[in-house]
């Protein structure tokens, strides 16, 4: 549990699912990044971040997604995102991330595509 942010992990077959709840901003972005890094360093190569419970993401939060994507690509892994609400989706679109990251409407759809 971090400031205004809760993280839970689950595993479905080979895919690690990280669910984020709350706000992802400058205050907690470093902690979330470090949590994500640990997941990747542990050898997980298929990562799904479920943003269903994310209310807000700042530029600092976008940077975390970018870093996770880079780290997984370097390790020949794969990152997918799902469950963006309208506010979060707009932020992704403003940064052009919707064209670069793999984003799905919901968890089932994302899992099917791994």
């Amino acid at each position: 549990m971090l400031a205004a942010m809760q993280m839970t992990t689950d595993v479905s077959e080979e895919v690690t699912i990280l669910s984020l709840d709350g706000d992802l901003n400058a205050t907690n972005s470093r902690d979330v990044e470090s949590y994500l890094s640990n997941i990747i360093d542990e050898g997980n190569r298929k990562l799904l971040i479920n943003l269903d419970g994310l209310n807000y993401i700042s530029s600092a939060g976008l940077r975390v997604m970018l870093m996770a994507n880079k780290k997984l690509k370097n390790a020949e892994g794969e990152l997918k995102l799902c469950g963006l609400n309208d506010t979060v989706k707009e932020v992704f679109e403003i940064a052009g991330f919707h064209m670069i990251l793999n984003i799905y409407v919901n968890q089932e759809e994302a899992l099917r595509d791994f």
Binding site: A26, T27, R63
Partner: peptide, 22 residues
């Protein structure tokens, strides 16, 4: 300081490289 630490230029360079590669 926390705000500055959350968006360092080193990562902004990666942000640009992502667009450049695309």
């Amino acid at each position: 300081y926390a705000a500055a630490a959350s968006l360092p230029m080193a990562d902004i360079a990666d942000w640009y490289l992502m667009h450049f590669k695309s």
